[in-house]
């Protein structure tokens, strides 16, 4: 196990290094931030001074080297727009995005697994077809449209829930969270449902497919032949087997939830990282974009590692392969 983790960490370092190069070069190709930053009426001397200040007069490889040296010391550069460290800007907005993503993931798991298993156990029942039809809608309706419709229905027409912002927050271990206040929770509900719809549909389909496959396996029949109750057969023998694909996909999708909460955050004006990156892209705020992408890469690498570890706990056969490796 230890050998496995060390090897994976080394691989991760390589991935992060390669990604940093790609991101840095990529962002430089996109456009010249100087045009956006400088007052159109500034004279040539002024323009050159700004370029020099930002270090944009240096050749690209020198800029990259400078970036790497600073990045290793935890400095990903200052935002062109805000003048603050890019990392700090992102980290300030991280709790909001994480809270939203975790809430969406929880909804997807807590609703998706039972619904999927039920649909798998009774595939011909009417309600089971309804669940599956619903999951197709969850897959195919565009998230921004569903978000707008939800605001229309629940915020504008019914007036039950607020449509924008985080509401009241309370600090927990130095991090501001919404879900512990009534007001915050009501603000969280709509965006969390909106963000979870796609994952919920995915979990339902995975759980259903897993159930359909596992229910015909001999070990389920053997469990029944032992005289176990149907509850135990489903909750222990079946569930533990179908959790393997569900955990794998959800782990990988969590990174996606965070990275692509951009749409939901924009629709519900949720003050998270997604909204920041959209604004920064518009303004070609290179350091923020690079820092954001680096953090996302790091997050994916960590999530992959965690998924592998959780996977080995769920499936003992994986554990054995690790010790051999």
């Amino acid at each position: 196990m230890t050998v496995f983790i060390i090897r994976r960490l080394l691989q991760s370092v390589v991935v992060v290094a390669v990604m940093s190069l790609l991101v840095f070069v990529g962002v430089n190709i996109v456009g010249d931030p100087v045009d956006m930053l400088i007052n159109p009426e500034a004279d040539q001397a002024e323009i050159e001074r700004v370029i020099r200040d930002l270090g944009l007069d240096r050749p690209l490889h020198e800029q990259y080297g400078y970036f790497v040296v600073n990045a290793l010391q935890g400095d990903l550069g200052d935002s062109f727009i805000f003048g603050q460290p890019a990392l700090q800007l992102i980290i300030e907005r991280m709790p909001a995005t994480f809270e939203l993503a975790i809430a969406a993931l929880l909804l997807a798991v807590v609703l998706g697994i039972p619904l999927g298993v039920l649909a798998g156990l009774r595939p011909d029942a009417g309600w089971s077809r309804t669940i599956m039809a619903g999951s197709i809608l969850g897959f195919s309706l565009p998230s921004f449209w569903v978000g707008i419709m939800m605001i229309m229905l629940f915020a504008v027409m019914l007036g039950w829930l607020p449509s924008t912002g985080r509401g009241d927050t309370v600090p927990v271990l130095g991090v501001e969270v919404s879900f512990l206040t009534r007001d915050g929770l009501s603000h969280l509900l709509l965006p969390a449902i909106n963000l979870s719809l796609f994952k919920l549909s995915l979990v339902i389909r995975l759980a259903r497919a897993g159930t359909r496959e596992a229910i015909h396996q001999d070990y389920i029949k053997f469990a029944r032949a032992k005289g176990l109750s149907e509850t135990r057969v489903v909750l222990v023998h079946l569930l533990k087997n179908i959790m393997i694909p569900v955990v794998t996909v959800l782990g990988l999708e969590f990174g996606g939830l965070v990275a692509f909460s951009v749409v939901t955050e924009s629709v519900f004006a949720w003050p998270g990282m997604g909204k920041l990156i959209i604004d920064s892209l518009h303004e070609l705020d290179r350091p923020v974009v690079v820092a954001y992408l680096m953090i996302v890469v790091l997050m994916f690498v960590i999530i992959n590692l965690v998924v592998d570890i959780v996977y080995s706990i769920l499936d003992p056969r994986v554990r054995l392969q690790d010790t051999r490796a």
Partner: peptide, 11 residues
């Protein structure tokens, strides 16, 4: 059952 590879729950 017939196939001992399949009758015991792998997890």
């Amino acid at each position: 059952f017939q196939d001992p590879m399949m009758t015991l729950n792998p997890v």
